[in-house]
Design a protein around this nucleic acid. Structure first.
Lengths: 135, 135
DNA sequence: GTGACTGCAAACGCTTTGCAATTGA
DNA sequence: TCAATTGCAAAGCGTTTGCAGTCAC
């Protein structure tokens, strides 16, 4: 079921603005900031206000249609939930980001559950360090 | 070697403000925000400006005397480097934070190195989820 | 004495909010 | 029709910065 159906079924309206925001998120290959979304949406639908972007992202987040990721800066990144839960290795030297699969966290997850009684929600994770090119 | 010696050796001056900030960080049992530091320092040294807190933290960070942690909110947390590198499990339901030891990350670290050629700097990590009390 | 440091006030970047006007269902 | 949604402008929040005065060394 697409984003639009989910929105409708939850009593939200499909406005041109929302429609475009969903499209941009869908087409984005990587995580994307509200700023970038705004820029892209503006190109096709002038005068969209940034607050509309924020409010729409809030709705989409609530409906689990997008994932919100804190990559350590002062801004947040978003990506279409269907693109799957992935994580990021961020090289502090060259800035490169490497996507890794959830599977890599299985051992850690197990330790947290068994040893700390904590059920981690490992969907929004960024790990800093140095990549192989920068050794 | 204490913070004061390190500061001196690197050509920084020991001002009353810096001295107090170092004390507060040293006495803090947990990670602490610039805001909290400011409040505590102000109690003993009125009229300390918040920018002094920020500037001092920047210096201490550069000298590896404090660790900076992004706990996912919009603010940063700091703790005295001697308190060791620990990580946080943050319950998204009750807000409780649990400290875990670096050791728990050994398996993950290994995977990242061997499989992704990435040397993680796992010093500033926060993991969200649900704690055992909130199941 | 002199450069490092401080307080102040203003600005910053990202995000949120109140409100009146608009619009989708 | 009419509540949901939008644009606008302003404020919020943590943080940074330029500058003139002050202070540690």
């Amino acid at each position: 079921m697409g984003c639009r159906e989910v929105l409708k079924q939850n009593g939200y309206r499909i406005t041109p603005q929302r429609s475009l925001i969903v499209d941009v998120l869908h087409d984005a290959e990587k995580h994307i900031t509200p700023e970038e979304i705004h820029k892209q949406v503006s190109a096709r639908f002038p005068e969209v206000n940034k607050s509309t972007i924020y409010r729409t992202l809030e709705v989409l987040k609530k409906l689990d249609l997008v994932d919100e990721t804190d990559l350590g800066g002062n801004k947040l990144y978003y990506h279409h939930a269907e693109h799957g839960h992935h994580h990021h290795l961020i090289c502090q030297n060259c800035g490169r980001t490497i996507e890794i699969e959830e599977e890599a966290f299985a051992p850690l997850k197990k330790i947290l559950v068994t040893r700390y009684g904590f059920d981690p929600d490992i969907r929004h994770l960024a790990i800093f360090g140095r990549c192989v090119n920068c050794d």
